[in-house]
């Protein structure tokens, strides 16, 4: 089994998920809207003081992404479960991790699209400017999202096939998310403050380590989760 063939499988799964998402589009619109709504709520909760809003911006952005993104992961399996298509998908020859990788890519694209709207809105609402260091800021966003989506795609493989899936996914996911959330929020907020303490670099390296660890663990464990 060559890498090229595996990559074709990964791409096929990703494109299939994205196509069905694109045709309905209801999911993306609703999730993006929810993300913006959560940002508004943070604005009301933290008060109109511009300074306080700016300080809390990084945390609010990441929590808005978390709370809206978590709704996307169950959907990623739900469409297939409703159509009875998960078993046939697993019966195709090839490695199981290719299914996981494909779904991961599709979910990544989905969450990046949500962020494309939510983050600019947050910058406006919370009076934040990322004029300098926007490259670092984007890389922090990408790294945090990769960690979040990896764990989300993995745990949704279980929660989407159990009772009360809406509650179960955040219960499983959020405790596992703490290192990634901490790294992403700390890196973002120190970058937003101009990185005076020079600590963003350390957090970015740590985020890379977390992403690799969780990605490896999820790919290795996915087979056990999906086969039953």
């Amino acid at each position: 089994m060559s890498w090229k063939e595996e990559w074709r499988r990964v791409r096929a799964v990703a494109l299939k998920d994205l196509t069905s998402e694109r045709r309905s589009r209801a999911g993306l619109n609703a999730v993006t809207f929810l993300g913006v709504l959560v940002l508004m709520l943070f604005g009301f909760a933290l008060g109109p003081d511009a300074e306080a809003l700016r300080e809390a911006a990084a945390g609010a952005i990441w929590l808005a992404i978390l709370f809206s993104g978590v709704l996307a992961f169950n959907r990623s399996y739900q469409l297939e479960l409703d159509g009875g298509a998960l078993e046939p998908l697993l019966l195709y020859p090839g490695a199981r991790w290719a299914v996981f990788a494909g779904k991961l890519l599709a979910n990544l694209a989905f969450v990046f699209l949500v962020e494309l709207i939510v983050i600019p809105v947050a910058l406006v609402l919370f009076h934040v400017s990322i004029a300098d260091g926007w490259m670092a800021q984007i890389s922090v966003t990408v790294l945090g999202t990769v960690g979040f989506v990896t764990l989300g795609t993995f745990y949704a493989a279980m929660s989407s096939r159990s009772r009360s899936r809406e509650v179960l996914l955040p219960l499983l996911l959020f405790p596992m998310m703490i290192p990634v959330l901490l790294g992403a929020v700390e890196a973002s907020s120190s970058l937003l403050a101009g990185d005076v303490m020079q600590e963003a670099g350390a957090w970015i390296r740590m985020l890379i380590a977390f992403d690799i660890t969780f990605l490896a663990a999820a790919v290795a464990a996915f087979e056990y989760v999906i086969e039953v």
Partner: peptide
């Protein structure tokens, strides 16, 4: 099978959480 996987990943996460919070 699922709870075994969740238990193992949880065990993996404990030192990572400890390290990140200490940082």
């Amino acid at each position: 099978q699922w709870s075994a996987v969740v238990g193992l990943l949880g065990a993996l996460n404990v030192p990572i959480v400890y390290m990140s919070v200490r940082w």
